[in-house]
């Protein structure tokens, strides 16, 4: 885990909040991703991000010694623009666990629960009213790769119905309290901005892109 070791130091000042909380860190070129900052793709096209919001749920921590699983099935809402949403699970001693598996997004029962409280609040901009359900991952921004006048891209990845169920199970080893989300990898391997720059509803493309997500988490 060389990369994460490096990142650990990089992000140290950025998320000093007490050790023990699980933190999600989106990255671009192995540095913490910042909104509105201009990055470059491997093809040297510019790219910047205005929104990154993600739902996580169904966490299962595996104990180092006993191998026992501790499950926490709350819905976690992550918003890059709101630092209070970056870390969670205060009372967990992460050093006890060797790995964690979780769902990126919401399973079908969470989608249809009709609960609109807390992380489920439609106010968070992750709710599809006309087609009951939630967006698992919302990522928006601009890139010179996008062949339109505005160069904007907008991905609302979600949907829980067969055959385009988009929630992903992800597993990472816990070397520290950080989970890294390699956004650059997502854009180089799963998203082709020349062809696809707007996804706003459950569909095949949302399904295909979502399948690439699990490889982006470390």
């Amino acid at each position: 885990m060389k990369v994460s070791f490096f990142l650990f130091f990089l992000s140290f000042g950025y998320s000093l909040n007490c050790y023990g909380q699980l933190s999600i860190i989106p990255t671009w070129n192995i540095k913490p991703l910042e909104l509105q900052r201009i990055y470059f793709t491997p093809q040297n096209d510019s790219i910047s991000f205005s929104t990154l919001k993600i739902y996580f749920s169904d966490f299962r921590f595996k104990d180092k010694t006993s191998g026992r699983i501790t499950s926490i099935d709350t819905l976690i809402f992550y918003d890059l623009s709101d630092s209070s949403s970056h870390s969670f699970f205060n009372d967990l001693n992460l050093s006890n666990y060797e790995s964690v598996a979780f769902t990126l997004g919401l399973d079908s029962s969470k989608n249809v629960s009709g609960e609109l409280e807390n992380a489920y609040d439609p106010l968070l901009g992750m709710y599809w009213a006309w087609n009951t359900g939630y967006i698992n991952l919302k990522i928006m921004g601009e890139s010179s790769t996008v062949p339109t006048n505005s160069h904007e891209f907008e991905f609302h990845l979600g949907g829980y119905r067969f055959p385009f169920a988009t929630a992903q199970t992800i597993q990472v080893n816990l070397n520290d309290q950080y989970i890294y989300f390699d956004v650059e990898k997502l854009f180089s391997e799963s998203i082709n901005l020349t062809k696809n720059h707007h996804i706003m509803l459950p569909c095949k493309d949302a399904f295909l892109i979502s399948q690439g997500l699990s490889a982006c988490f470390k």
Binding site: V112, G114, L116, A129, W130, T132
Partner: peptide, 20 residues
């Protein structure tokens, strides 16, 4: 709910007209 059955819950239904 709705002519296309897109809404699965009476509570959540009301978000539609308000925000549409």
């Amino acid at each position: 709910f709705h002519w296309d059955g897109g809404v699965l819950n009476l509570n959540a239904q009301a978000i539609n007209p308000i925000t549409h």
